[in-house]
Design a protein around this nucleic acid. Structure first.
Lengths: 186, 186, 186, 186
DNA sequence: GATGAATGAGATTTCATTCAT
DNA sequence: CATGAATGAAATCTCATTCAT
């Protein structure tokens, strides 16, 4: 029971996520979401009482998906490099995720509940980057004078803006430059 | 045609711009825009036949406002520094501009006409940065090995994402780090 | 302009009033009201922003219609008699008014705004009856021991319940008995 | 069938009755009724196949509750007095009963099945009052010229309208006046 | 140009009822 | 009997757009 119930919820979230990626929150229609999973639109309210509830679920899903970009590697340098590569890979394989995330971030400006989810993810990410950088400094990979907080913020800022207002060519360039600044190239 | 006519159009564009900054394209209502300037909602259609026309005008206005960040200074380094400072100043004084710009960029993904406007501005900006960097290299301010295209892309990416998903504190940090990477600090 | 506007509002109120009399608040559908006056249902919202607004207007209309039962006659006895006769006449000619009034009274129990309108009318009516009775006592028509407040309350209570749970035959009987108790018969 | 079954039905009727008293037929929701008794809303349909069936059961319950106001006393005067007192007591203790009854009476206007139940109770009550009055006349408590049918109708009309459109203060006044007219005092 | 009125199309939400399990 | 899931039908309300004046 529960698993089937969970499945339907999840399927609805996925359908809503893709709709948002395609048409933005602006173009999100519950009827379309229900149609996508072959469900009557009234049934959708069985799982999500309001549109807002569904939207929140989507935002949570998107931020969690993003948070799963766990890097692998032994040294901090390797970890950071693989982190950036994984993200770049995700960008190519599933650009929808970045679009939806940016939609969420804009909406967070007006929706307190979404803001909490988005901010939490941002802070966790920042902390994660800071830790890698600190460990790298300890191991002599980066100079002790590195402002880890600032660098972490810059990394996030740069990645954030990909797929929004930049062609994929320019995005790739920007990411390469970031790696150069971080001295990640061999 | 007449200057009064132009004035009205401009006032409507401004009202729409602020509404979009506050509530997103999602929350843009023509009636509210008309109300804001004390005009009947039907009259608005005399100036902008459709909602889409008004939205396009707003996007144009916003990108042009942004393009007016003309840097001053003699040397390329001074120009780039003043450029970044002007942008940071604008961020603080009129954050609405950046929000609206990001809204426009997301919408550009689905709206070909808006996409053209947004891309044009992005390319112009990129070219502008490339030129400064090239001139700087010529004058010995930066290494000849600098990948000017990549650096320009990185600058844009970084600035783009400000005011979206980052607190103003982190935004400031990211901008400082950018200046360090660009060796703009004395 | 205004008069036409007023006309439409009034026509809508009338249509809603008759619908309520026929089907109760329970069966009030905005679409039906609009249909009755040959208007698109969306246009109805042009005149009454919400259903509640329309309902309030109907309640006001009904109570005011009822309050217009102005009695004629020189002496208090004649006034009271003509008052009761006018009401009986109204009962026969427009029973809908009494049904709608009773609907309003029941709804008043849950709707504070309607409650105010209904209570105001009830108090005004009570005061009106008390004044007639007092004047009658002064002129020697009724005994000085008459409890004018109680008698007024009883008159209202009795009339209130007509057309609700009593056949018209029994209603008439009750009204006749009331007149006997008030010694209005010559 | 089983007593447990009966219990459940009764509990559901009670829950529906209270909901109607609070929110009117207008606000009656089967889900809420089921929730009130801790039952699944689908299960409710095992006991009452349709909403209408439940409503009819509630109307029956309410009218029967009211009919149980059996007067005590030896003489007709005492019986009538105790009858009125019992009703007044019920008014104070369980005003919901009167509200629900009035709701039922209004609904009876549109629902033939409910109308039968309501009318039956009204006629039974009327007959009951007539009998008491007739017996009282026989025993010399009231004048032979008393129009028993009319007086019975007036009593019913007056009681009916209590708790609808009259404050409890005015209701009490009206009841007192009724007792005076019926010479039930001292 | 300006405006009140009107409308079509649609969106979210509600709810009684049914059904498979 | 009990219940979660599903659905059809409808209701209120919104909003860009049009039009007569």
């Amino acid at each position: 029971m529960t698993s089937k119930n969970e499945d339907r919820s999840q399927t609805l979230i996925l359908a809503a996520y893709h709709t948002i990626a395609e048409k933005g929150f602006e173009g999100l229609r519950l009827r379309e979401v229900a149609d996508r999973v072959g469900l009557n639109h009234a049934t959708l309210h069985h799982y999500f009482p309001t549109k807002e509830a569904l939207v929140q679920a989507v935002v949570l899903y998107v931020t969690q998906r993003f948070a799963q970009t766990v890097p692998i590697g032994e040294t901090p340098v390797e970890q950071l490099r693989s982190h950036l590569h994984l993200i770049q890979q995700l960008m190519q394989e599933e650009p929808a995720l970045f679009i939806a995330l940016n939609e969420a971030k804009l909406r967070a400006q007006r929706d307190p509940i979404i803001r909490i989810t988005v901010q939490k993810q941002a802070e966790a990410w920042h902390e994660f980057l800071v830790n890698i950088l600190r460990e790298g400094i300890k191991q002599g990979n980066w100079s002790e004078s590195l402002d880890v907080e600032a660098v972490a913020s810059a990394i996030i800022a740069l990645i954030n803006s990909t797929n929004i207002g930049l062609s994929s060519k320019r995005t790739k360039q920007a990411m390469q430059q970031l790696e150069r600044w971080l001295e990640l190239n061999d």
